[in-house]
Amino acid sequence: MSDLKEIVNNEDYNLNDSSFRARCKNTLDQQGVLVLENFIQASVIQQIKQEGEANQHLAYFCQQSHSAYLTPPYNNFPAQHPQNYQVMSSKGCITDDQIAQDSPLRSVYDSQDFRQFLCHVLGEQSLYEYADPLSSINLHYARAGEELGWHFDNSSFAITLLVQKPEADGVFEYVKDARNSSQGDMNYPLVESILQGSVKGTPLSMEPGALVLFRGRDSLHRVTPVKGDTTRMLVVLAYNSQPGIALSEFAQETFYGRSAKAC
């Protein structure tokens, strides 16, 4: 499947329409998140789900402890300080080289119309795939009890596609502008309140087929623990604003349980 018109819901989303692009950009700029429900046609999402189910046995599952800032411990702060406070993340992942060449995911990811749409909405000049063979398209699995702990992203934007909802929970929650990283303001009091549960995140409702653009560098976010027997499946479409960028071998081993060197 290579024609984007057979994959994307063109009745609602004309990626080449300048007014539609402008509305999307305004929403993302104002709210820090853009949700395009039913972006992928239902029959195509069903195909992607079947691919995900067939390949789940290939996924690398891991559980990791980390701080909300995704940084090593600061020795000059106590363990319970927001900078060091540890949360848990647990998930499975299959990598780009495990996505079929004829998968609709690859057709969307490689589409120049899609990339030009993203560039306009995100305010980027160009978008490039990762230079390593693992990181461009990832399919994440979250089974019962698995979650993503509160964290800030290192990248300025994230692009995801929901494939399957769990029976219960597995909800994406965020607190917009919880810090100002460009000014070096980590906003420890607010982050502590979020980590302790006294400040609640805003839940983001979405259904399978929804495309989500999210600015998570300064917005603290998490996915609550999944409940039930249905695995949450979410695709991450990862791009760079510069060509030739690859995840380090250490990062690959951490996230994927192997490196491209071993492929």
Score class of each variant (00 low, 15 high):
H221A: 01
T160Q: 15
C263M: 02
E253K: 15
Q86L: 10
S67Q: 01
S259K: 13
Q31K: 09
N10H: 12
H57I: 00
A54T: 08
N138G: 06
V235H: 00
I48S: 06
N9P: 02
Q64D: 10
L134H: 02
P189Y: 13
V191P: 01
G52R: 05
K91I: 03
D29H: 04
G197W: 09
L28I: 02
S198H: 04
A178F: 03
E173N: 14
F214C: 04
Q63P: 02
S107M: 07
N26W: 01
G92R: 05
E253S: 15
A168T: 08
I245Y: 14
C119Q: 05
P72Q: 04
G170Q: 01
R215K: 15
V35K: 09
I137V: 05
A54P: 00
Y85R: 13
H66T: 02
C119V: 05
F250T: 14
N180R: 13
P133S: 14
Y60E: 01
P243N: 08
Y74L: 07
Y256Q: 02
L211F: 12
A100I: 02
P225C: 10
I245H: 12
A168S: 07
Q41W: 08
K91N: 05
Q183E: 14
P225T: 08
L28V: 04
P203V: 01
Q83L: 08
L195P: 12
G197K: 08
Q101P: 07
M233Q: 13
F172V: 12
Q64I: 05
L4I: 15
A42C: 05
Q83E: 10
R143V: 06
G92L: 00
F61D: 06
F255R: 04
T95W: 04
W150F: 11
E124S: 13
K49W: 04
N154G: 13
P78F: 10
P78R: 13
Y74R: 07
R21P: 01
A144I: 03
A251R: 13
S19D: 09
Q64C: 03
Q63N: 14
G257C: 06
G216Q: 00
H81G: 06
K25D: 03
S155H: 11
R217Y: 01
V226D: 07
Y69K: 06
R232N: 08
Q30A: 15
C93E: 05
F157L: 00
A59T: 06
W150P: 08
S155D: 15
H66F: 09
Y74F: 07
Q30H: 09
D185L: 15
G184S: 09
D169W: 00
F117K: 06
P166D: 05
G209E: 11
E249S: 07
V121M: 01
Q47T: 15
T231L: 11
W150L: 10
C263Q: 14
G170A: 02
V121K: 00
